[in-house]
């Protein structure tokens, strides 16, 4: 039971990271109807920028951890958001009203570009960082000496996710930008006729998605203590899986899907085999889609005849 509780905590933390990335996928899919294959790499870039910013701050002799974290978070979000904006501007906007597969391939190409750009710019080797946030709480000490722990970093990941999610839900439901985004999602032509700046709204969607991915990248760095140029691919696929699992286009769905994928992966590794954890995640995706073709929280697609 203790072991299970511990895995539950670990799974939720991992799931929060996936959920943050999944939101980017789901938003972009909702508004432009394309799978942004480069989003996983945006997450990776976010991790790298967080790492580099952290290194610079430390080498300047900054020691106040909360301040460092805040600066790292802001810098990483800002620069990564600009990456998201640029990717949309270069690779997707020219193909906005084109053939459906063209933006998808353009996105795959962009993903190759970003992966290899990081490899060339920062080298192929894994970049480790020493644990930045240490300590934690012991929740429960079992009879056999097994300890259920909740580390500080886990708390930070979950709290950050919850805060961002709340902020973001407010953004989409109650601001002008959110309204524009929802309008564009329904009907871009009509939105444009009613005075919504569609280009700007779509750009902002990418910017917000990238900023959230940057947060996920930073959390990943803090939690696992490393980044490498290839981490975007696997994390990206799993986050997209999470988005689809939760019902693509739905924000709570993305978060729910992320948590589920995180939990499945952790529990499977803990109880069955580590090697097959991804197989388990993908298999569950397939099974869910067979029975709920639009995901858990997705709106069922009504076939218009």
């Amino acid at each position: 039971m203790d072991y299970f509780a511990q895995q539950l905590i670990n799974g939720l933390v991992l799931g929060s990271i996936y959920g943050l990335i999944a939101i980017g996928y789901t938003m972009v899919y909702g508004i432009v109807g394309m799978i942004n294959f480069a989003h996983g790499d945006i997450f990776m870039i976010g991790g790298f920028i967080a790492l580099i910013t952290f290194l610079i701050l430390v080498s300047f002799g900054l020691t106040a951890i909360p301040l460092i974290l805040l600066v790292v978070l802001l810098v990483s979000m800002a620069i990564t958001a600009l990456y998201g904006w640029t990717v949309e501007r270069i690779a997707y906007r020219p193909l906005r009203h084109s053939f459906r597969l063209a933006p998808m391939l353009s996105a795959i190409g962009m993903s190759f570009v970003l992966t290899n750009y990081s490899q060339v710019a920062q080298g192929a080797r894994v970049k480790p960082v020493p644990p930045i946030i240490t300590g934690g709480y012991t929740l429960h000490e079992g009879a056999e000496g097994f300890i259920v722990q909740l580390s500080n970093i886990q708390i930070i990941v979950v709290v950050t996710t919850v805060v961002l999610l709340a902020l973001f839900t407010w953004l989409v439901s109650s601001t002008r930008l959110g309204r524009d985004m929802r309008a564009c999602e329904q009907d871009q032509t009509m939105a444009a006729l009613l005075g919504v700046d569609v280009d700007r709204t779509i750009s902002m969607t990418f910017v917000i998605g990238a900023a959230l991915a940057a947060v996920a990248g930073m959390m990943y760095l803090l939690y696992y203590g490393l980044v490498d140029f290839f981490m975007g691919f696997v994390a990206g696929i799993k986050a997209f899986t999470a988005a689809v699992l939760g019902g693509i286009g739905s924000l709570p769905g993305a978060m729910l899907g992320g948590l589920l994928i995180g939990l499945i992966e952790t529990l499977w590794s803990a109880y069955f085999s580590v090697e097959y954890k991804d197989v388990a995640a993908f298999s569950i995706l397939i099974v869910v889609l067979i029975f709920l073709p639009t995901g858990l929280l997705g709106r069922p697609e009504v076939e218009k005849v």
Binding site: L95, F99, G109, V113, T115, N116
Partner: peptide, 21 residues
């Protein structure tokens, strides 16, 4: 060498923009 995939990815993006069909 290591720039190969970078160029390949860029080529994919440009080709799609140039001839989406």
């Amino acid at each position: 060498d290591q720039y190969r995939m970078l160029v390949f990815g860029m080529a994919m993006v440009l080709l799609m923009i140039w001839r989406p069909r």
